[in-house]
Write a protein that binds this DNA or RNA. Structure first.
Lengths: 217, 217
DNA sequence: TCCTATTAACTAACTGGTTAATTATAACTG
DNA sequence: CAGTTATAATTAACCAGTTAGTTAATAGGA
């Protein structure tokens, strides 16, 4: 069937998608309603028709993105074999999703750097769910005696922050190498190497017991 | 001596300081020239007189901030006792500086999440210097056989990213606890605990040799 | 006097948001 | 099923407020 001349769902979805891309690329303030409308060949008024105002659109975009990643991570992790396997699933799924949807980490980073200035309640919820998920994995690992000396909030930012930064700075790092060849910005590292490395290192960090002088039995 | 009625240096410095604060708090686009001018009791035209345009001011602000932190880290680290001590100095100095100047991490995060979209050359240089510093510490440690399996770029983002996020989200995390008491967002952690924890964990992560099965001797 | 610092007033461009009119479509009706 | 109607989707034109940047005039100090 040919696509209908008017299709509310398609229009709404198109607005969300293009807005997400533009918000991520240029930030909230620098992105104009007209720009978004032009990008998806839709009249500007449609944005206000469907999302009331710019803040409403932003809120919709963020919830959409965060819920999507949360679902993905939940999905991959429902196995519950062991805290270690869950941790690995968390890291790798999060990394892979970010790599495939690079606007997401940019949006999250920007929002966090505002300290949630215009962070809608709904979005805050979604962010919190992700943290709660990792937190429970870490605490389970600690109670099983696998992980030691865990501060979930710090570990969470260590994982999520590192991945977000590596994904968002990908073009920047490639550019840096072009300007200065003897600078190793890991610009060739693909996302699998990166998430593998992060998992390996976080694992080490959590598994070793005595922080000052690691001794073996 | 009484402060002169006209003092170019003081005016310039005042503009930089207040602009830094406002850019960090509200972002580049959301900060207006008039707002900055009002904040430092200076005529708006002075901003354009001294910094040509908004982008010029932003560039000046960023260089100023980044050079300051770089100098601070260099200063504390000139001891060169050992890679481990240098690493500790790097982490703790960076963390302390961020805590004392919380606009800096917000600015850096925002800029990185743009992937340096309007990142001026000058500022890029300053960011690079910081990375080069840590990189040389890590490589020295590796060549001395203290650190193992180091990818400087990832470790750099792990350290700097974690600290930046923890500093910028401080108010957000406090707020989260107020809304949901059984959520541990590390809102009471002070910067010394945090940097100590990060150093301890990064140390573990780098010192243990075999990633798969850590063995001793 | 001459140069630098400073100001108030101005403008041209842009932005979020509105509105009244228009079109497509589905539902109803006889 | 043709024709009517109600309503949801879409548009173009517009508005009021804001913003970066300019300019011409002025005041202070060496």
């Amino acid at each position: 069937m040919a696509k209908p001349t008017r299709d509310a769902e398609a229009t709404k979805a198109s607005i969300i998608q293009n807005a997400m891309m533009l918000f991520a690329k240029n930030g909230y303030e620098a992105t104009t309603a007209e720009e978004i409308a032009k990008e998806c060949n839709v009249n500007k008024a449609m944005i206000f028709y469907y999302y009331k105002n710019k803040a409403g659109l932003y809120s919709a975009v963020m919830s959409h993105a965060l819920d999507a990643i949360h679902e993905e991570v939940i999905e991959s992790e429902k196995c519950c074999v062991s805290p270690l396997a869950d941790l690995e699933a968390f890291i790798k799924t999060y990394a892979k999703y970010c790599d495939e949807h690079p606007y997401l980490p940019a949006l999250i980073l920007r929002e966090l750097s505002d300290s949630g200035a215009h962070l809608p309640e709904m979005m805050f919820e979604s962010l919190r769910k992700l943290f709660t998920l990792l937190s429970s994995i870490l605490k389970e690992g600690e109670s099983q005696g696998i992980f030691h000396n865990v501060i979930p909030m710090i570990i969470h930012f260590m994982i999520v922050g590192t991945i977000n930064l590596l994904v968002t700075t990908k073009p920047l790092r490639a550019n840096a190498v072009a300007l200065n060849a003897d600078l190793d910005t890991c610009s060739d590292c693909d996302i699998d190497e990166i998430s593998d490395y992060i998992f390996t290192k976080i694992k080490l960090m959590l598994e070793v017991k005595n922080e000052k002088n690691p001794t073996c039995a």
